[in-house]
Design a protein around this nucleic acid. Structure first.
Length: 571
DNA sequence: GAGTTTGAAACT
DNA sequence: CAGTTTCAAACTC
Protein backbone atom coordinates (compact mmCIF):
# COMPACT_ATOMS: atom_id res chain seq x y z
CA UNK A 1 0.00 0.00 0.00
CA UNK A 2 0.94 3.52 -0.42
CA UNK A 3 2.10 4.63 2.91
CA UNK A 4 3.45 7.59 4.63
CA UNK A 5 5.99 9.70 2.98
CA UNK A 6 6.70 11.99 5.82
CA UNK A 7 3.43 12.95 7.29
CA UNK A 8 2.52 16.33 6.04
CA UNK A 9 -0.17 17.33 8.34
CA UNK A 10 -1.29 20.09 6.23
CA UNK A 11 -3.99 21.91 7.92
CA UNK A 12 -1.79 24.76 8.91
CA UNK A 13 0.30 24.75 5.84
CA UNK A 14 -2.25 25.22 3.15
CA UNK A 15 -3.77 28.26 1.75
CA UNK A 16 -7.47 27.99 1.46
CA UNK A 17 -7.78 30.14 -1.52
CA UNK A 18 -10.07 29.10 -4.21
CA UNK A 19 -8.32 27.18 -6.86
CA UNK A 20 -9.26 25.36 -9.88
CA UNK A 21 -8.03 21.90 -9.33
CA UNK A 22 -7.19 19.91 -12.33
CA UNK A 23 -9.37 16.90 -12.48
CA UNK A 24 -8.31 15.93 -15.87
CA UNK A 25 -9.88 17.94 -18.54
CA UNK A 26 -13.32 19.24 -19.03
CA UNK A 27 -14.82 16.92 -16.57
CA UNK A 28 -12.95 18.57 -13.82
CA UNK A 29 -14.59 20.29 -11.00
CA UNK A 30 -15.64 23.82 -10.93
CA UNK A 31 -14.66 26.06 -8.15
CA UNK A 32 -17.53 27.52 -6.37
CA UNK A 33 -17.02 30.47 -4.13
CA UNK A 34 -16.11 29.80 -0.63
CA UNK A 35 -19.12 29.88 1.48
CA UNK A 36 -19.53 32.57 3.96
CA UNK A 37 -18.92 31.39 7.40
CA UNK A 38 -21.71 30.84 9.72
CA UNK A 39 -21.56 31.46 13.34
CA UNK A 40 -21.53 27.80 14.04
CA UNK A 41 -18.38 27.33 12.11
CA UNK A 42 -16.74 30.58 12.73
CA UNK A 43 -13.72 28.87 14.04
CA UNK A 44 -13.29 26.80 10.97
CA UNK A 45 -11.94 27.72 7.68
CA UNK A 46 -14.04 26.45 4.89
CA UNK A 47 -12.26 24.54 2.29
CA UNK A 48 -12.06 25.57 -1.27
CA UNK A 49 -14.91 23.62 -2.65
CA UNK A 50 -14.56 22.03 -5.97
CA UNK A 51 -17.43 20.23 -7.41
CA UNK A 52 -17.50 18.32 -10.60
CA UNK A 53 -19.57 19.81 -13.34
CA UNK A 54 -22.37 20.18 -13.75
CA UNK A 55 -22.86 22.23 -10.70
CA UNK A 56 -24.70 20.25 -8.18
CA UNK A 57 -28.04 20.84 -6.76
CA UNK A 58 -28.20 21.51 -3.09
CA UNK A 59 -29.97 18.35 -2.20
CA UNK A 60 -27.62 16.24 -4.22
CA UNK A 61 -24.61 18.28 -4.35
CA UNK A 62 -21.65 16.70 -2.87
CA UNK A 63 -19.82 13.70 -3.76
CA UNK A 64 -19.63 11.53 -1.83
CA UNK A 65 -23.26 11.75 -1.02
CA UNK A 66 -24.56 14.70 0.79
CA UNK A 67 -25.52 14.36 4.33
CA UNK A 68 -29.17 13.98 4.86
CA UNK A 69 -30.99 17.01 5.90
CA UNK A 70 -32.75 14.87 8.33
CA UNK A 71 -32.33 12.89 10.36
CA UNK A 72 -28.95 13.64 11.61
CA UNK A 73 -27.77 10.93 13.82
CA UNK A 74 -27.62 12.22 17.33
CA UNK A 75 -24.39 10.42 17.64
CA UNK A 76 -22.90 11.75 14.53
CA UNK A 77 -19.61 13.30 15.12
CA UNK A 78 -20.19 16.95 14.58
CA UNK A 79 -16.91 17.69 12.98
CA UNK A 80 -17.37 15.26 10.24
CA UNK A 81 -20.40 16.26 8.47
CA UNK A 82 -21.04 18.76 5.82
CA UNK A 83 -24.24 20.07 7.11
CA UNK A 84 -26.31 21.56 4.46
CA UNK A 85 -29.07 23.89 5.23
CA UNK A 86 -30.93 25.68 2.53
CA UNK A 87 -28.21 24.63 0.23
CA UNK A 88 -25.55 26.38 2.19
CA UNK A 89 -22.78 24.24 3.52
CA UNK A 90 -22.26 25.12 7.09
CA UNK A 91 -19.28 23.00 7.76
CA UNK A 92 -16.86 21.16 5.66
CA UNK A 93 -16.11 17.62 6.28
CA UNK A 94 -12.78 16.83 7.70
CA UNK A 95 -11.35 13.55 6.79
CA UNK A 96 -9.31 11.27 8.97
CA UNK A 97 -7.43 9.37 6.35
CA UNK A 98 -4.34 7.59 7.44
CA UNK A 99 -3.24 5.36 4.67
CA UNK A 100 -4.55 6.78 1.47
CA UNK A 101 -2.67 10.05 1.53
CA UNK A 102 -6.04 11.53 0.78
CA UNK A 103 -5.41 10.72 -2.82
CA UNK A 104 -8.01 8.06 -3.24
CA UNK A 105 -11.70 8.11 -3.26
CA UNK A 106 -11.64 6.74 0.22
CA UNK A 107 -10.91 10.29 1.18
CA UNK A 108 -14.07 12.28 1.14
CA UNK A 109 -12.23 15.49 0.55
CA UNK A 110 -10.49 14.12 -2.46
CA UNK A 111 -13.66 12.51 -3.69
CA UNK A 112 -15.46 15.79 -3.28
CA UNK A 113 -12.87 17.57 -5.29
CA UNK A 114 -11.61 19.71 -2.51
CA UNK A 115 -8.32 20.18 -0.82
CA UNK A 116 -7.95 18.85 2.60
CA UNK A 117 -7.98 21.69 5.01
CA UNK A 118 -8.10 21.41 8.70
CA UNK A 119 -8.57 17.71 8.43
CA UNK A 120 -7.22 15.13 10.76
CA UNK A 121 -5.62 13.14 8.04
CA UNK A 122 -2.14 11.73 8.11
CA UNK A 123 0.37 12.11 5.34
CA UNK A 124 -2.03 14.11 3.29
CA UNK A 125 -1.18 14.80 -0.29
CA UNK A 126 -4.44 16.37 -1.16
CA UNK A 127 -3.06 19.85 -1.03
CA UNK A 128 -1.35 22.46 -3.10
CA UNK A 129 2.09 21.39 -2.08
CA UNK A 130 1.56 17.96 -3.58
CA UNK A 131 -0.19 19.08 -6.64
CA UNK A 132 1.71 16.76 -8.92
CA UNK A 133 0.98 13.71 -6.88
CA UNK A 134 -2.52 14.82 -6.57
CA UNK A 135 -2.91 15.29 -10.27
CA UNK A 136 -1.56 11.86 -10.91
CA UNK A 137 -3.98 10.45 -8.44
CA UNK A 138 -6.81 12.26 -10.11
CA UNK A 139 -5.80 10.94 -13.47
CA UNK A 140 -5.51 7.44 -12.15
CA UNK A 141 -8.87 7.72 -10.54
CA UNK A 142 -10.45 9.04 -13.67
CA UNK A 143 -8.85 6.29 -15.62
CA UNK A 144 -10.51 3.76 -13.42
CA UNK A 145 -13.75 5.56 -13.40
CA UNK A 146 -14.36 8.55 -15.64
CA UNK A 147 -17.33 9.47 -13.53
CA UNK A 148 -15.48 9.24 -10.28
CA UNK A 149 -15.79 12.92 -9.59
CA UNK A 150 -19.24 13.33 -10.87
CA UNK A 151 -22.24 13.39 -8.63
CA UNK A 152 -23.34 10.03 -7.52
CA UNK A 153 -26.85 11.15 -7.13
CA UNK A 154 -28.70 11.89 -10.26
CA UNK A 155 -31.96 13.65 -10.29
CA UNK A 156 -34.55 11.23 -11.40
CA UNK A 157 -37.57 11.80 -13.57
CA UNK A 158 -39.14 9.14 -11.49
CA UNK A 159 -38.30 10.82 -8.29
CA UNK A 160 -41.18 11.00 -6.01
CA UNK A 161 -42.49 13.75 -3.92
CA UNK A 162 -44.42 12.07 -1.35
CA UNK A 163 -46.60 14.29 0.70
CA UNK A 164 -45.81 12.38 3.79
CA UNK A 165 -42.16 12.66 3.12
CA UNK A 166 -42.41 16.30 2.39
CA UNK A 167 -44.27 16.75 5.57
CA UNK A 168 -41.36 15.09 7.21
CA UNK A 169 -39.04 17.58 5.62
CA UNK A 170 -37.59 14.95 3.45
CA UNK A 171 -37.42 15.38 -0.20
CA UNK A 172 -36.82 12.23 -2.06
CA UNK A 173 -35.61 12.97 -5.48
CA UNK A 174 -33.00 11.44 -7.59
CA UNK A 175 -31.29 8.18 -7.35
CA UNK A 176 -27.87 6.83 -6.90
CA UNK A 177 -26.19 6.38 -10.21
CA UNK A 178 -24.44 3.22 -9.25
CA UNK A 179 -26.74 2.21 -6.51
CA UNK A 180 -25.73 0.90 -3.16
CA UNK A 181 -24.75 -2.64 -2.29
CA UNK A 182 -25.65 -2.72 1.31
CA UNK A 183 -26.08 -6.05 2.96
CA UNK A 184 -26.57 -5.51 6.61
CA UNK A 185 -27.65 -2.00 7.22
CA UNK A 186 -31.05 -2.29 5.68
CA UNK A 187 -30.11 0.86 3.82
CA UNK A 188 -31.32 2.75 6.83
CA UNK A 189 -27.97 3.78 8.13
CA UNK A 190 -25.49 6.18 6.84
CA UNK A 191 -23.35 3.39 5.67
CA UNK A 192 -25.76 3.35 2.82
CA UNK A 193 -24.97 6.00 0.29
CA UNK A 194 -28.55 6.25 -0.77
CA UNK A 195 -29.76 6.78 2.73
CA UNK A 196 -26.96 9.17 3.37
CA UNK A 197 -27.94 11.16 0.34
CA UNK A 198 -31.48 11.12 1.55
CA UNK A 199 -32.84 9.30 -1.41
CA UNK A 200 -34.64 6.08 -1.87
CA UNK A 201 -32.87 3.07 -3.11
CA UNK A 202 -33.55 2.53 -6.73
CA UNK A 203 -33.38 -0.13 -9.34
CA UNK A 204 -29.69 0.63 -9.55
CA UNK A 205 -29.12 -0.74 -6.11
CA UNK A 206 -28.22 -4.29 -5.32
CA UNK A 207 -28.78 -4.05 -1.67
CA UNK A 208 -30.13 -6.76 0.53
CA UNK A 209 -32.99 -6.46 2.91
CA UNK A 210 -33.51 -2.93 1.83
CA UNK A 211 -35.79 -0.82 3.92
CA UNK A 212 -35.07 2.39 2.18
CA UNK A 213 -38.02 2.38 -0.11
CA UNK A 214 -41.17 4.34 -0.13
CA UNK A 215 -43.76 2.78 2.05
CA UNK A 216 -41.18 1.28 4.33
CA UNK A 217 -42.44 1.52 7.84
CA UNK A 218 -38.97 1.62 9.28
CA UNK A 219 -37.96 4.32 6.95
CA UNK A 220 -41.02 6.41 7.51
CA UNK A 221 -40.57 6.04 11.20
CA UNK A 222 -37.10 7.45 10.91
CA UNK A 223 -38.40 10.53 9.22
CA UNK A 224 -41.35 11.22 11.39
CA UNK A 225 -40.33 10.95 14.96
CA UNK A 226 -38.59 13.44 17.14
CA UNK A 227 -35.01 12.87 17.97
CA UNK A 228 -35.63 10.54 20.84
CA UNK A 229 -38.15 8.73 18.82
CA UNK A 230 -35.73 8.49 15.98
CA UNK A 231 -33.15 7.01 18.26
CA UNK A 232 -35.64 4.55 19.52
CA UNK A 233 -36.71 3.65 16.05
CA UNK A 234 -33.15 3.39 14.92
CA UNK A 235 -32.61 0.92 17.66
CA UNK A 236 -35.73 -0.85 16.64
CA UNK A 237 -34.43 -0.91 13.13
CA UNK A 238 -31.18 -2.27 14.39
CA UNK A 239 -33.02 -4.95 16.23
CA UNK A 240 -35.03 -5.71 13.20
CA UNK A 241 -31.94 -5.89 11.09
CA UNK A 242 -30.13 -8.02 13.59
CA UNK A 243 -33.04 -10.29 14.02
CA UNK A 244 -33.63 -10.53 10.38
CA UNK A 245 -30.07 -11.39 9.66
CA UNK A 246 -29.88 -14.00 12.32
CA UNK A 247 -27.74 -16.98 11.79
CA UNK A 248 -28.85 -17.54 8.31
CA UNK A 249 -27.01 -14.64 6.92
CA UNK A 250 -28.56 -11.67 5.29
CA UNK A 251 -31.88 -10.44 6.31
CA UNK A 252 -33.68 -11.72 3.36
CA UNK A 253 -36.66 -13.68 4.40
CA UNK A 254 -36.05 -17.34 3.83
CA UNK A 255 -38.56 -17.62 1.12
CA UNK A 256 -37.05 -14.83 -0.76
CA UNK A 257 -33.46 -15.22 0.03
CA UNK A 258 -31.24 -15.10 -2.91
CA UNK A 259 -28.91 -17.93 -3.32
CA UNK A 260 -25.57 -17.12 -4.57
CA UNK A 261 -25.33 -17.50 -8.27
CA UNK A 262 -29.00 -17.92 -8.49
CA UNK A 263 -31.68 -15.55 -9.40
CA UNK A 264 -33.70 -14.08 -6.71
CA UNK A 265 -36.75 -16.16 -6.59
CA UNK A 266 -39.10 -13.37 -7.03
CA UNK A 267 -38.73 -11.69 -10.30
CA UNK A 268 -35.04 -11.38 -10.42
CA UNK A 269 -34.99 -11.89 -14.09
CA UNK A 270 -37.72 -9.54 -14.90
CA UNK A 271 -36.69 -7.60 -17.88
CA UNK A 272 -39.08 -4.86 -17.17
CA UNK A 273 -38.79 -3.49 -13.69
CA UNK A 274 -41.87 -1.51 -14.26
CA UNK A 275 -43.81 -4.53 -13.21
CA UNK A 276 -42.64 -3.77 -9.74
CA UNK A 277 -43.84 -0.28 -9.84
CA UNK A 278 -47.14 -1.42 -8.74
CA UNK A 279 -47.26 -0.92 -5.03
CA UNK A 280 -48.09 -4.52 -4.62
CA UNK A 281 -44.73 -5.42 -5.92
CA UNK A 282 -42.89 -3.21 -3.59
CA UNK A 283 -40.88 -4.36 -0.75
CA UNK A 284 -42.77 -4.93 2.35
CA UNK A 285 -40.44 -6.77 4.55
CA UNK A 286 -41.57 -6.52 8.12
CA UNK A 287 -44.09 -4.07 6.98
CA UNK A 288 -47.71 -3.95 7.53
CA UNK A 289 -47.91 -0.50 6.25
CA UNK A 290 -49.36 1.01 3.16
CA UNK A 291 -48.12 -1.59 0.80
CA UNK A 292 -50.83 -4.12 0.53
CA UNK A 293 -48.80 -7.11 -0.27
CA UNK A 294 -46.34 -9.26 1.53
CA UNK A 295 -44.26 -9.99 -1.44
CA UNK A 296 -40.64 -9.49 -2.00
CA UNK A 297 -38.86 -7.72 0.71
CA UNK A 298 -35.44 -7.74 -0.66
CA UNK A 299 -34.12 -5.38 -3.16
CA UNK A 300 -31.43 -7.81 -3.94
CA UNK A 301 -30.82 -7.25 -7.49
CA UNK A 302 -29.08 -9.20 -10.03
CA UNK A 303 -26.58 -8.13 -12.49
CA UNK A 304 -28.89 -9.25 -15.17
CA UNK A 305 -31.87 -7.53 -13.81
CA UNK A 306 -32.29 -4.34 -11.93
CA UNK A 307 -33.86 -4.51 -8.57
CA UNK A 308 -37.35 -3.29 -8.32
CA UNK A 309 -38.02 0.34 -8.16
CA UNK A 310 -39.13 0.99 -4.70
CA UNK A 311 -40.99 4.19 -4.88
CA UNK A 312 -44.68 4.27 -5.38
CA UNK A 313 -45.86 4.24 -8.90
CA UNK A 314 -49.24 5.04 -10.16
CA UNK A 315 -51.09 2.26 -11.80
CA UNK A 316 -51.18 4.28 -14.91
CA UNK A 317 -47.56 5.17 -14.83
CA UNK A 318 -45.86 3.50 -17.66
CA UNK A 319 -49.15 3.32 -19.37
CA UNK A 320 -49.90 6.91 -19.88
CA UNK A 321 -46.89 8.70 -21.15
CA UNK A 322 -46.45 12.36 -21.89
CA UNK A 323 -46.75 11.65 -25.55
CA UNK A 324 -50.02 9.90 -24.87
CA UNK A 325 -51.30 12.95 -23.12
CA UNK A 326 -50.19 14.99 -26.00
CA UNK A 327 -52.04 12.70 -28.29
CA UNK A 328 -55.08 12.99 -26.17
CA UNK A 329 -54.79 16.72 -26.26
CA UNK A 330 -54.48 16.51 -29.99
CA UNK A 331 -57.66 14.54 -30.12
CA UNK A 332 -59.34 17.16 -28.05
CA UNK A 333 -58.05 19.75 -30.40
CA UNK A 334 -59.56 17.82 -33.23
CA UNK A 335 -62.82 17.77 -31.39
CA UNK A 336 -62.53 21.43 -30.91
CA UNK A 337 -62.11 21.85 -34.59
CA UNK A 338 -64.93 19.53 -35.40
CA UNK A 339 -67.38 20.99 -32.98
CA UNK A 340 -66.38 24.45 -33.92
CA UNK A 341 -66.94 23.48 -37.48
CA UNK A 342 -70.34 22.15 -36.69
CA UNK A 343 -71.35 25.14 -34.74
CA UNK A 344 -70.01 27.60 -37.16
CA UNK A 345 -71.65 25.86 -40.03
CA UNK A 346 -74.85 25.88 -38.18
CA UNK A 347 -74.49 29.52 -37.52
CA UNK A 348 -73.64 30.16 -41.10
CA UNK A 349 -76.69 28.27 -42.18
CA UNK A 350 -78.76 30.21 -39.79
CA UNK A 351 -77.36 33.37 -41.07
CA UNK A 352 -78.02 32.35 -44.60
CA UNK A 353 -81.56 31.50 -43.74
CA UNK A 354 -81.90 34.79 -42.10
CA UNK A 355 -80.55 36.56 -45.09
CA UNK A 356 -83.05 34.82 -47.26
CA UNK A 357 -85.84 35.82 -45.04
CA UNK A 358 -84.23 39.17 -45.03
CA UNK A 359 -86.20 41.89 -43.57
CA UNK A 360 -89.13 39.77 -42.54
CA UNK A 361 -88.42 38.94 -39.01
CA UNK A 362 -85.79 39.27 -36.42
CA UNK A 363 -84.14 36.26 -35.09
CA UNK A 364 -86.93 34.23 -33.69
CA UNK A 365 -86.96 32.22 -30.61
CA UNK A 366 -87.75 29.29 -32.81
CA UNK A 367 -84.27 29.42 -34.21
CA UNK A 368 -82.93 29.51 -30.78
CA UNK A 369 -84.80 26.42 -29.90
CA UNK A 370 -83.62 24.75 -33.01
CA UNK A 371 -80.07 25.62 -32.23
CA UNK A 372 -80.39 24.16 -28.85
CA UNK A 373 -81.92 21.01 -30.21
CA UNK A 374 -79.15 20.62 -32.67
CA UNK A 375 -76.50 21.14 -30.15
CA UNK A 376 -78.10 18.59 -27.92
CA UNK A 377 -78.22 16.16 -30.75
CA UNK A 378 -74.60 16.78 -31.55
CA UNK A 379 -73.65 16.30 -27.99
CA UNK A 380 -75.43 13.03 -27.81
CA UNK A 381 -73.71 11.91 -30.93
CA UNK A 382 -70.32 12.77 -29.55
CA UNK A 383 -71.05 11.23 -26.23
CA UNK A 384 -72.00 8.16 -28.08
CA UNK A 385 -68.70 8.23 -29.82
CA UNK A 386 -66.88 7.81 -26.57
CA UNK A 387 -67.97 4.26 -26.30
CA UNK A 388 -67.37 3.39 -29.86
CA UNK A 389 -65.34 0.27 -30.19
CA UNK A 390 -62.72 1.18 -32.65
CA UNK A 391 -59.01 0.94 -32.65
CA UNK A 392 -58.03 3.56 -35.09
CA UNK A 393 -55.42 5.85 -33.75
CA UNK A 394 -55.29 9.52 -34.18
CA UNK A 395 -52.07 11.15 -34.97
CA UNK A 396 -51.37 14.47 -33.40
CA UNK A 397 -51.19 16.26 -36.68
CA UNK A 398 -54.37 14.81 -37.94
CA UNK A 399 -56.22 17.92 -37.13
CA UNK A 400 -54.20 19.88 -39.52
CA UNK A 401 -54.46 17.27 -42.19
CA UNK A 402 -58.16 17.43 -41.83
CA UNK A 403 -58.04 21.10 -42.21
CA UNK A 404 -60.08 21.42 -39.14
CA UNK A 405 -57.83 23.50 -37.08
CA UNK A 406 -58.60 26.89 -35.84
CA UNK A 407 -57.16 28.51 -38.89
CA UNK A 408 -60.44 27.79 -40.50
CA UNK A 409 -61.90 30.49 -38.45
CA UNK A 410 -63.68 28.35 -35.96
CA UNK A 411 -64.05 30.01 -32.67
CA UNK A 412 -62.21 28.65 -29.75
CA UNK A 413 -63.07 29.48 -26.24
CA UNK A 414 -60.45 30.48 -23.75
CA UNK A 415 -61.10 27.27 -21.93
CA UNK A 416 -60.49 25.26 -25.00
CA UNK A 417 -57.35 27.14 -25.67
CA UNK A 418 -56.25 26.36 -22.20
CA UNK A 419 -56.81 22.73 -22.92
CA UNK A 420 -54.55 23.11 -25.84
CA UNK A 421 -51.69 24.50 -23.85
CA UNK A 422 -49.51 21.56 -24.71
CA UNK A 423 -50.07 22.16 -28.32
CA UNK A 424 -48.86 25.66 -28.14
CA UNK A 425 -46.31 25.43 -30.82
CA UNK A 426 -48.52 24.07 -33.46
CA UNK A 427 -51.96 24.82 -32.33
CA UNK A 428 -52.13 27.90 -30.27
CA UNK A 429 -50.88 30.23 -32.88
CA UNK A 430 -53.21 28.68 -35.35
CA UNK A 431 -56.10 29.02 -33.02
CA UNK A 432 -55.27 32.61 -32.49
CA UNK A 433 -55.25 33.25 -36.17
CA UNK A 434 -58.39 31.25 -36.41
CA UNK A 435 -60.05 33.40 -33.90
CA UNK A 436 -59.07 36.33 -35.90
CA UNK A 437 -60.42 34.74 -38.96
CA UNK A 438 -58.90 34.83 -42.41
CA UNK A 439 -57.10 37.98 -43.00
CA UNK A 440 -57.74 38.99 -39.50
CA UNK A 441 -61.14 40.31 -40.30
CA UNK A 442 -62.82 39.47 -37.08
CA UNK A 443 -65.93 41.42 -37.50
CA UNK A 444 -66.88 39.82 -40.74
CA UNK A 445 -66.59 36.27 -39.51
CA UNK A 446 -67.34 36.13 -35.89
CA UNK A 447 -70.91 35.89 -34.80
CA UNK A 448 -72.40 38.23 -32.37
CA UNK A 449 -71.19 38.22 -28.82
CA UNK A 450 -74.15 36.27 -27.64
CA UNK A 451 -73.68 33.67 -30.29
CA UNK A 452 -70.03 33.48 -29.44
CA UNK A 453 -70.85 32.88 -25.84
CA UNK A 454 -73.26 30.19 -26.73
CA UNK A 455 -70.80 28.72 -29.10
CA UNK A 456 -68.10 28.64 -26.51
CA UNK A 457 -70.33 27.08 -23.96
CA UNK A 458 -71.58 24.51 -26.33
CA UNK A 459 -68.15 23.74 -27.63
CA UNK A 460 -66.72 23.33 -24.21
CA UNK A 461 -69.57 21.20 -23.11
CA UNK A 462 -69.03 18.84 -25.97
CA UNK A 463 -65.30 18.71 -25.57
CA UNK A 464 -65.28 18.33 -21.85
CA UNK A 465 -67.99 15.73 -21.86
CA UNK A 466 -65.99 13.69 -24.24
CA UNK A 467 -62.83 14.23 -22.29
CA UNK A 468 -64.60 13.10 -19.18
CA UNK A 469 -65.56 9.93 -20.92
CA UNK A 470 -61.99 9.36 -21.93
CA UNK A 471 -60.87 9.80 -18.36
CA UNK A 472 -63.48 7.37 -17.21
CA UNK A 473 -62.09 4.89 -19.64
CA UNK A 474 -58.65 5.40 -18.24
CA UNK A 475 -59.91 4.88 -14.75
CA UNK A 476 -61.50 1.68 -15.83
CA UNK A 477 -58.30 0.55 -17.43
CA UNK A 478 -56.36 1.35 -14.30
CA UNK A 479 -58.79 -0.63 -12.23
CA UNK A 480 -58.47 -3.54 -14.57
CA UNK A 481 -54.75 -3.41 -14.28
CA UNK A 482 -54.90 -3.16 -10.55
CA UNK A 483 -57.02 -6.25 -10.34
CA UNK A 484 -54.70 -8.14 -12.60
CA UNK A 485 -51.64 -7.06 -10.70
CA UNK A 486 -53.22 -8.13 -7.48
CA UNK A 487 -54.10 -11.50 -8.87
CA UNK A 488 -50.67 -11.82 -10.34
CA UNK A 489 -48.97 -10.93 -7.11
CA UNK A 490 -51.02 -13.36 -5.16
CA UNK A 491 -50.34 -16.21 -7.47
CA UNK A 492 -46.70 -15.24 -7.66
CA UNK A 493 -46.47 -15.39 -3.91
CA UNK A 494 -48.11 -18.75 -3.80
CA UNK A 495 -45.74 -19.98 -6.44
CA UNK A 496 -42.79 -18.91 -4.37
CA UNK A 497 -44.01 -20.55 -1.26
CA UNK A 498 -44.65 -23.71 -3.10
CA UNK A 499 -41.30 -23.53 -4.77
CA UNK A 500 -39.46 -23.07 -1.54
CA UNK A 501 -41.34 -25.73 0.28
CA UNK A 502 -40.10 -28.04 -2.35
CA UNK A 503 -36.41 -28.56 -1.95
CA UNK A 504 -36.03 -29.16 -5.62
CA UNK A 505 -37.73 -26.01 -6.51
CA UNK A 506 -35.74 -23.26 -8.01
CA UNK A 507 -36.31 -19.91 -9.44
CA UNK A 508 -36.73 -20.97 -12.99
CA UNK A 509 -40.43 -21.24 -12.87
CA UNK A 510 -40.84 -17.83 -11.42
CA UNK A 511 -38.35 -16.50 -13.81
CA UNK A 512 -40.24 -17.93 -16.68
CA UNK A 513 -43.46 -16.66 -15.32
CA UNK A 514 -42.06 -13.23 -15.00
CA UNK A 515 -40.63 -13.33 -18.41
CA UNK A 516 -43.96 -14.33 -19.70
CA UNK A 517 -45.61 -11.61 -17.80
CA UNK A 518 -43.18 -9.05 -18.92
CA UNK A 519 -43.42 -10.15 -22.44
CA UNK A 520 -47.11 -9.89 -22.24
CA UNK A 521 -47.38 -13.59 -22.89
CA UNK A 522 -50.10 -15.38 -21.12
CA UNK A 523 -49.24 -16.58 -17.70
CA UNK A 524 -50.03 -20.17 -17.19
CA UNK A 525 -52.54 -19.32 -14.56
CA UNK A 526 -53.36 -15.80 -15.30
CA UNK A 527 -55.19 -13.88 -17.84
CA UNK A 528 -52.90 -12.05 -20.16
CA UNK A 529 -51.56 -8.88 -18.74
CA UNK A 530 -52.42 -5.83 -20.63
CA UNK A 531 -49.23 -4.31 -21.83
CA UNK A 532 -48.58 -0.66 -21.81
CA UNK A 533 -48.97 -0.52 -25.51
CA UNK A 534 -52.28 -2.21 -25.27
CA UNK A 535 -53.40 0.06 -22.53
CA UNK A 536 -52.33 3.16 -24.33
CA UNK A 537 -53.76 1.88 -27.51
CA UNK A 538 -56.98 1.21 -25.76
CA UNK A 539 -57.01 4.54 -24.04
CA UNK A 540 -56.10 6.44 -27.10
CA UNK A 541 -58.45 4.43 -29.16
CA UNK A 542 -61.18 5.70 -26.95
CA UNK A 543 -60.37 9.09 -28.18
CA UNK A 544 -59.47 7.92 -31.61
CA UNK A 545 -62.63 5.97 -31.89
CA UNK A 546 -64.55 8.92 -30.77
CA UNK A 547 -62.79 11.04 -33.23
CA UNK A 548 -63.17 8.76 -36.16
CA UNK A 549 -66.70 8.00 -35.26
CA UNK A 550 -67.29 11.65 -34.91
CA UNK A 551 -65.81 12.18 -38.30
CA UNK A 552 -68.12 9.67 -39.79
CA UNK A 553 -71.12 10.99 -38.02
CA UNK A 554 -70.60 14.65 -38.36
CA UNK A 555 -72.44 15.69 -41.41
CA UNK A 556 -69.84 18.20 -42.40
CA UNK A 557 -66.56 18.17 -44.09
CA UNK A 558 -63.93 20.79 -44.29
CA UNK A 559 -62.88 21.45 -47.80
CA UNK A 560 -60.57 24.20 -48.76
CA UNK A 561 -61.09 25.71 -45.45
CA UNK A 562 -64.83 25.82 -45.87
CA UNK A 563 -67.38 23.69 -44.21
CA UNK A 564 -69.63 21.71 -46.43
CA UNK A 565 -72.36 19.34 -45.59
CA UNK A 566 -71.67 15.70 -46.28
CA UNK A 567 -73.97 14.12 -48.80
CA UNK A 568 -75.71 17.40 -49.05
CA UNK A 569 -77.48 16.61 -45.91
CA UNK A 570 -79.62 19.43 -44.79
CA UNK A 571 -78.82 20.99 -41.55
C1' DG B 1 -12.17 7.46 22.73
C1' DA B 2 -11.31 2.74 21.60
C1' DG B 3 -13.06 -0.84 19.20
C1' DT B 4 -16.33 -2.75 15.83
C1' DT B 5 -19.12 -2.72 11.80
C1' DT B 6 -20.04 -1.46 7.37
C1' DG B 7 -19.76 -0.81 2.50
C1' DA B 8 -17.23 1.74 -1.16
C1' DA B 9 -13.00 1.70 -3.46
C1' DA B 10 -9.14 -0.62 -4.88
C1' DC B 11 -6.93 -4.54 -6.10
C1' DT B 12 -6.23 -9.38 -7.83
C1' DC C 1 -16.40 -9.79 -13.61
C1' DA C 2 -16.29 -11.92 -9.20
C1' DG C 3 -13.79 -12.37 -5.06
C1' DT C 4 -10.71 -10.27 -1.76
C1' DT C 5 -8.41 -6.59 0.56
C1' DT C 6 -8.01 -1.94 2.01
C1' DC C 7 -9.83 1.94 3.74
C1' DA C 8 -12.31 5.39 6.36
C1' DA C 9 -16.81 6.62 7.95
C1' DA C 10 -20.46 5.18 10.85
C1' DC C 11 -21.58 3.19 14.71
C1' DT C 12 -21.39 0.88 19.48
C1' DC C 13 -19.92 0.55 23.96
Amino acid sequence: MEQSEGGSKKAESEPTSKRQLDFGGSSGPVVIPEQSKTSSVASQQLKPVLVPPPLLMPAQASHPPVRPLKPESPRARPRQTTEVKDGTPKKQKQCNCKHSRCLKLYCECFASGIYCDGCNCVNCHNNVENEDARREAVEATLERNPNAFRPKIASSPHGTRDNREEAGEVLILGKHNKGCHCKKSGCLKKYCECFQANILCSENCRCMDCKNFEGSEERQALFHGDHAHITYLQQAANAAITGAIGSSGYGVPPLLKKRKGQELVFGSTAKDPSIYRHPQFQQTNNIRGPAPSSLSSSCVGNSAAPAPTKSYRSLLEGIIQPEDLKQLCSVLVVYTGETGKIIEDRNAAEKQAEDQRESSLTLSTRDRCRSQKESDAERSVIDDCSSANQTEKVMPDESSSDGVDASNGRPMSPGTLALMCDEQDTMFAASESGTMGHGGNTSSQLPQDQCMTETYAEQERIILTNFRDCLNKLITLGQIKERKCSAMAQIESEDQIAAFSNSNANARMDTRNHQELNNGAPHSQLPPVMTRTQMVSSAVSVSAASHSDLQSRIPFTAENGNLKPKNDKPL
